[in-house]
Write a protein that binds this DNA or RNA. Sequence first.
DNA 1: CTAGGAGCTCGACCGAGGTCTAGGTCAAAT
DNA 2: ATTTGACCTAGACCTCGGTCGAGCTCCTAG
Lengths: 136, 136
Amino acid sequence: MRPTGVGIGEVARRTGLSVHTLRLYERVGIFAGPVQRDAAGRRVYSEWDIAWLGNCVLFRASGMPLAALAELARLVSEGPGNEADRLDLLRAHRQRVREQMTQLTDCLMLIDAKVAGYEKHLAAGAGGDPWQPNRP
Amino acid sequence: MRPTGVGIGEVARRTGLSVHTLRLYERVGIFAGPVQRDAAGRRVYSEWDIAWLGNCVLFRASGMPLAALAELARLVSEGPGNEADRLDLLRAHRQRVREQMTQLTDCLMLIDAKVAGYEKHLAAGAGGDPWQPNRP
DNA sequence: CTAGGAGCTCGACCGAGGTCTAGGTCAAAT
DNA sequence: ATTTGACCTAGACCTCGGTCGAGCTCCTAG
């Protein structure tokens, strides 16, 4: 773990985000505290920044809006004293994630049923349409 | 099961969508075949339409874009003969849903870890910040 | 007869989240 | 010395999925 700083291109490659998106994220305040710059003004991301970003990517993928991420970043950057608020944010998001998971599960069951229907249908060669049992 | 037709307001109430959204969905072709109208030009949804819409809502909630839904609707409305195509669409979406679920699972684990950290932190009263163990 | 409520169409508008462009700086390689 | 490539900012632009409003047509109840 050398105390390296990493350029934006490298971070983009590592996280799968575009450099544009990284700059956008910074503008909307997703980093906890300002990203460091080198002498020429180029961004230098710390390993901590990158780890945080990794969490952000997960949170985003689970539907957390940028604004919420920014709020969390603000809380963290303010340092100790607001842990309860962070906890609230996390718990609220956890709730939403759980709801999503049950929806995804439902959807998966539906798809599985339809897929099974079509597979049987195709294997058996024709027959009525499995999706529209009784349409004009 | 009377052969009722249902008005748009009632459908909105049943599905949780707004009437605006229902009309939008129709415009982008989400229904398999045109929605019936009464003498005055008002939409009359069949029970089949409503059931289909229910599936659409689930698919949407699982991230299927309207365009894909419209494509599926087109296939279904064309009647038998393209079952393989529908199957492709469904399998592709199933794949995406599965990926989402693993991401949600990952995210949930992360959140649980953070939440546990903060809970312990708060219960124990202060100590270092669980999220930024070593920040300047 | 008339007022209210539910629908209709068409088209404008909106917020979220990116994506891209123009025009410029810098540093290392040729 | 110049070219190349990575980076910078500011701001325009785009897609997606809704949401809303204006102005109209009905139907039904008072």
